[in-house]
Amino acid sequence: MASSHTIVRVSGVTKTFRMGRHEVQALRGVDLEIKAGEYISIMGPSGSGKSTLFNMIGGLDKPTEGKVFIDEVDIAQLDAYELAWLRNRKIGYIFQTFNLIQVMTALENVTLPMTFGGMSQDDAVEKGIELLKLVGLEGRHNHKPQELSGGQQQRVAVARSLANSPAIILADEPTGNLDLSTGAEIIELLRVLSAERGVTIITATHDYKMLNVSDRVIWIVDGRIDRIENRADLDIQVGEIKREEARA
């Protein structure tokens, strides 16, 4: 079954940033395995290194030491073309700040990855319209990002991340810039996608609403994995976690 094989493997990853004369260690050795079809949340306080880990998994940044494997292929070994191909076909990105291209309409934003992927214009438009319908934005194809609300922009971003039917969707604080109910809608949308399409979803977040839909939650503290929890254990602990955080 698809759910049995490892799609992301992180082994011994460290990352050091140079800030002027200081060296800041954002990650201090992370090992992690993610199975295809899982819904994973990476949680942790600001500055814990979760975004850094997240960028490594997405091939957006290179680790200082250690390796990241996407489907058992070491992404450090890929050349520029292969990396672009990976980002284009296999990974869909969703960002906290939506990052739609401002000069393009919703539909053009969604079809851009398909164009890069070599799809013909007609097919891309057809699929783009279908995807916008899927995220509940029917009839807003020709709106520019400025003409859409935050929640709607994030929906466009979700549609865009699905453009080339990726195996993995990486969402970096997808609800960070949204209000409670809009955030909940986006989370529900991701949950449905994960359940219906079998897409592996990896989110970096500190939104507790995300916990209820995650298969596993990975807690990052101070550049290391603090603990990994399955959803079954989670419901009991949510209250405790909150208290712990409050005390800290």
Partner: peptide, 14 residues
Amino acid sequence: FREIGTMKCLGALD
């Protein structure tokens, strides 16, 4: 820059 970064995330080559 942001637009460029986004495009590269979507698979654009240099």
